[in-house]
Amino acid sequence: MTDKLREEAKRVLREGIAEMVIGWAEGSAEFKTTPFFAFTEEDCDRLVWNTACVNNLAKYLTDYPKEKKIALCVKPCDSASVNVLIAENKVLRENIYVIGLACGGVIDPIKAADAGTCELSDATAKYACLHCVHDKPEVADIVLGEAERKLTPAGEDMPPFEERRKYWEKEFDKCVRCYACRQVCPNCYCEQCFADRTDPKWTSRKPTAGESWMFHAVRVMHMAGRCVGCGECERVCPKSIPVEKLSREMAKYVKDIYDYTAGMGEKPLLGTYKDEDYDAGVHEE
């Protein structure tokens, strides 16, 4: 598979389809890869595709001007992120060449290191992969390989309604407000985050459960209909807070109420209106 990927990447550069290919290269350990920017055909020989290709590379698209021709390697979930960026007009579809890769799940490098193996299993998989809703890349100019989903889908993991307050209070108490979850998110691209504003001060930097609750709640609201569930936020958290659980819950509401899945529509959820949209709170009965 890696060979096919390299070939395709070389072709893309050779034919001038893109100026650079963003993919993955080998990292410092067998269960670790690292984002890699290939500018030449020789560079392309460093690209790899395996179960350690955990990064959602759509993150890098907003680092560059819209006019730049970029080829991007994506897994199905990453492809959904690209679609969100396209729908929100942050990138231009015609300038992004998407190399889709069929994916049956990837490993979490720290879990793999703890387990001492990089074999993909329920124990080593990135947690979001156990909840994966994306079968194939939604947006792709080419799809390489075939994949079989062998992981056991994780069931409902949000605690029952009555226990949630206690559960999240404990989790948010751990939060140090490093905002890494925001930084790593491909679809968190605001130039100035509400959490960084000092005037008006929406939320204090104070890392107490109450203040952190405010930050995470607002983040989840901002990601409604936009979070594709790639789980990068959860993976990056230095305190291993399961922040993705909140977004997953939000995605469920979005699906139930608006029949919308993030990254699967041509228009952003909050940028469209249908007559039959749920409008409790907008119009009083």
Binding site: T34, F36, F37, Y60, V176, C178, Y179, A180, Q183
Partner: peptide, 10 residues
Amino acid sequence: KCVACGVCTY
């Protein structure tokens, strides 16, 4: 490739 998450420092 840095995404400025600061996890290295935390």
